[in-house]
């Protein structure tokens, strides 16, 4: 299995991309897609990236739904701020979030999630302390956002990439 398909997810993604680009399905197109999916990941072997393992597909689907909902809601929130429709004072500022997630793939996905939801900006992640510095356009009152990132995004990501939360001292 691992000799023929070193990175099964990459193979599947490449084949699917090929099929989408050459849209009307033809037997020849499917054959080429399979060839691309089988051959190209072997080039990646030279770089030796660790293979991605997705352990909880159901959690992944639920997380995708949550992110989609948050993306739409935060887009509307930020649009209201820009257009001056938001009443009251805006509390913009930086928030540091202690993360338990250390898995590089998990962190990469978290950065995509935080970028896909306007209003949150990933500023800096310190791999020594595991703390993430974020800039918030609104509601920078700290705890609510820390809880939101940890409960809504970090915990599902740790389940998906199969790492177990390690108890850390509160900081």
């Amino acid at each position: 299995m691992s000799r023929i398909l070193p990175y099964p997810l990459l193979s599947a993604a490449l084949a699917l991309t090929w099929l989408l680009l050459n849209a009307p399905l033809t037997p020849g197109g499917v054959l080429l897609a399979l060839l691309v999916g089988l051959a190209v990941p072997h080039v990646m072997r030279a770089l030796r990236p660790p293979a991605v393992r997705v352990r909880a597909p159901a959690t992944l689907a639920r997380l995708a739904g949550i992110v989609l909902y948050d993306m739409v809601r935060s887009n509307i929130d930020v649009a209201r701020v820009i257009l001056g429709l938001r009443r009251g004072t805006r509390r913009t500022g930086f928030v540091a979030i202690p993360l338990d997630l250390r898995e590089p793939f998990g962190l990469a996905v978290l950065s995509i999630i935080l970028t896909a939801t306007p209003g949150t900006l990933w500023v800096q992640y310190d791999s020594d302390t595991g703390r993430l510095l974020m800039h918030l356009l609104d509601d920078a009152d700290g705890d609510a956002w820390i809880r939101r990132v940890k409960d809504r995004y970090e915990r599902p990501l740790m389940e998906i990439f199969g790492c177990h939360p390690t108890p850390t001292s509160p900081s």
């Binding site: 930020v78 896909a116 306007p118 949150t120 800039h135």
Partner: peptide, 9 residues
């Protein structure tokens, strides 16, 4: 830092 949020829309 506020401005960077805007183009994400």
């Amino acid at each position: 830092y506020e401005r960077v949020h805007a183009p994400t829309l």
